[in-house]
Design a protein around this nucleic acid. Structure first.
Length: 485
RNA sequence: GCUCCUGUAGUCUAGUGGUCAAGGAUAGAGGCCUCUCGAGCCUUUGACGCGGGUUCAAAUCCCGCCAGGAGCACCA
């Protein structure tokens, strides 16, 4: 068996998204299985008006890959390889496999649709050569001349009729500026690179099938042998539209908190939420290489991650939208509560929480259980007053509504609604970033204020979270990013 | 419209002619818990798109139909 060489070729327009992750992990899987090589090829030709390379995304993509624990065997930039792309074109012209076309874009499109060939298609080689030299030499402005492959103007699929191989662009490129004006289309650049880099298998989404067929047409013309293609269908997470350009706008405008904003669903945002690369890997690999298009609920990804986190993640108390509760008749000896860090793993130890008669509880739970007896989880049972008037606009510190007065009943565990609580004494302000609410405020137990960046917790009856970096201003609430229930 | 692709439970997937009265995951339902009823654990409901054919035998092979999807840029 020959050596397997793979490539991932992202367009640098932001952090990798969950869709790119499929390419990343599938290729990585094949690299490992066949002890092959895996190259990162930045697909950074100039793009178009709507789709331009974004300077900072080169680093973002590198970081995403590092975070996923995947080290490419080599990194290439298409923008470094223009001369290489220019090299083989004259031969294509000589072979009569390509030609320079100066039809305006609009006419070109119309003729293609009608199956009408451009008169320049059949011009002789010296003329074509001269025109190519003219394109490189500045004879034409953007839009005035392109190189087209000669396939078949009568092909039943208009998409196959003499596609454009090179065009002129004056866009400023983040890496090479305006050094080049004549840029290859993706399919031409890859036709050269895939052979040049010795790629054996291209595994990617089926949206590029036509481009892959164009590569094959070019190899036939040049007498080259290229890699085999494998495709998968489109993957969508139900909860989101995967659109890098939309995310890019919100990141750029500041509406989003950078590429690590959970709403981008970028790889960096998933990592910020505490979603493990391993979970993402298992998730995308579970779909195999089917060409059907699938839409999967994020819950499936969460389930993978939960399986990884649950056994080792310490539990903590957090009360979203809190309301202050005072317990009358607290047993006098109750000064300290000892709480297990994990209900099933005593070896993870316990923590001590100082308590008084003042607590924070989720207002929603107080409203729901008004007049009933409830259990403050792991602590004691209380009777709630018959009426709990809702506070208007719950404040983050639970001080908005009037204090709710409950009465102590008993200590031992009983089958009551078990509600999480935070002791008012030493409670710390928490600000949780969820998909629905970028600032879900609440109160957490004291120890949370000193958690280090990257620490994972399960907030009981709330979900798994990951600690953001310590805020510079200690008065600011501690920030956690919500992963999933 | 054209080209290509795909059809297994609500969703995703295993399955390559017999071991499939179809396996797993997730969701749903029910239950358990000296303490998360939004976690965990247990149980459970639920599928081969339709119609023909080939064969002793079909989810698997063939044909037709139907239904979905993707692509159809001087973007990637």
């Amino acid at each position: 068996m020959g050596k397997v060489v793979l490539r991932l070729a992202p367009f640098p327009s932001g952090s990798l998204h969950i869709g790119n992750a499929r390419g990343l992990f599938v290729n990585q899987e094949y690299r490992q299985r066949y002890r092959g090589k895996f190259f990162l090829v930045f697909d950074d030709t100039v793009g178009s008006e709507e789709k331009r390379p974004v300077p900072e995304s080169y680093d973002l993509i590198l970081q995403d890959m590092a975070a996923a624990g995947i080290q490419p065997d080599a990194i290439y930039y298409k923008s470094d390889r223009l001369e290489l792309y220019y090299r083989d074109l004259p031969r294509l012209l000589d072979l009569g496999a390509a030609y320079v076309c100066t039809c305006p874009a609009e006419l070109l499109r119309k003729n293609r649709e009608a199956g009408v060939a451009c008169p320049e298609r059949s011009r002789e080689t010296p003329w074509q050569r001269d025109q190519w030299a003219g394109m490189l030499g500045g004879r034409y402005a953007p839009g005035e001349a392109v190189v087209r492959i000669k396939t078949d103007m009568g092909h039943p699929n208009p998409a196959f009729r003499d596609r454009v191989l090179f065009r002129i662009s004056d866009f400023h490129h983040p890496r090479v500026g305006t050094r080049y004006r004549v840029w290859p289309m993706l399919e031409y650049a890859f036709a050269i690179d895939d052979v040049e880099l010795g790629i054996t298998h291209v595994i990617r989404g089926k949206e590029l099938i036509i481009e892959d067929m164009m590569e094959e047409a070019l190899w036939r013309a040049l007498g080259l042998r290229g890699p085999a293609f494998l495709h998968w269908g489109l993957l969508r997470i139900r909860e989101t539209k995967i659109s890098k350009s939309k995310s890019y706008q919100d990141v750029k405008s500041g509406a989003y908190d950078g590429w690590a904003d959970p709403r981008t669903w970028s790889l960096s945002s998933l990592s910020r939420r505490g979603i493990r690369p391993q979970a993402i890997r298992d998730f995308v690999l579970s779909f195999g290489l089917s060409q059907s298009d699938i839409e999967v609920p994020a819950e499936t990804l969460y389930a993978e991650n939960r399986r990884l986190l649950d056994p080792t993640t310490p539990r903590r108390a957090f009360v979203p939208r809190p309301r202050r509760l005072r317990v009358e008749g607290m047993p006098g000896d109750l000064r300290v509560a000892r709480l297990a860090n994990h209900p099933e793993r005593p070896e993870m130890g316990e923590r001590e929480v100082e308590i008084s008669d003042a607590f924070f509880l989720p207002e929603a739970d107080l409203l729901k259980n008004a007049g009933k007896e409830i259990r403050l989880k792991d602590l004691l049972n209380v009777q709630l007053p018959p009426q709990v008037p809702p506070s208007e606009g719950v404040e983050a510190d639970g001080e908005a509504g009037a204090e709710v007065i409950a009465t102590f009943t008993t200590r031992p565990n009983k089958p009551l609604p078990r509600i999480q609580w935070v002791a008012a004494k030493g409670a710390t302000h928490i600000d949780v970033f969820t998909l629905e609410d970028p600032h879900l405020l609440g109160m957490g137990e004291a120890s949370l204020s000193s958690s280090r960046e990257g620490q994972l917790f399960q907030f009981e009856r709330f979900g798994f979270v990951r600690a953001d970096p310590q805020p510079e201003d200690p008065e600011q609430p501690r920030r956690f990013i919500f992963a999933h229930p």
